[in-house]
Amino acid sequence: MKDFGEAGVILNIKLKREGDGGVTLLQSHYVEKVLSRFRFSNCDLAGAGFEGWLFKKS
């Protein structure tokens, strides 16, 4: 049995504990890994083909 203490990553999802008790699920480390694997970490950003505000809470 190996104790990891506070859960950090489970099934490749990073858990980030917020100050107010909330939990944020992140996979940005995975995205970064994929980008660096294809040598795209330093690529320039460009606008996406859809409108970001659609996904934002109003």
Partner: peptide, 18 residues
């Protein structure tokens, strides 16, 4: 479960079985 943990402020710990 993580959502429940967030709303009840539970502590999340992880273990792994060798």
């Amino acid at each position: 479960l993580i959502a429940v943990a967030a709303s009840y402020s539970l502590i999340i710990n992880q273990m792994d079985v060798k």
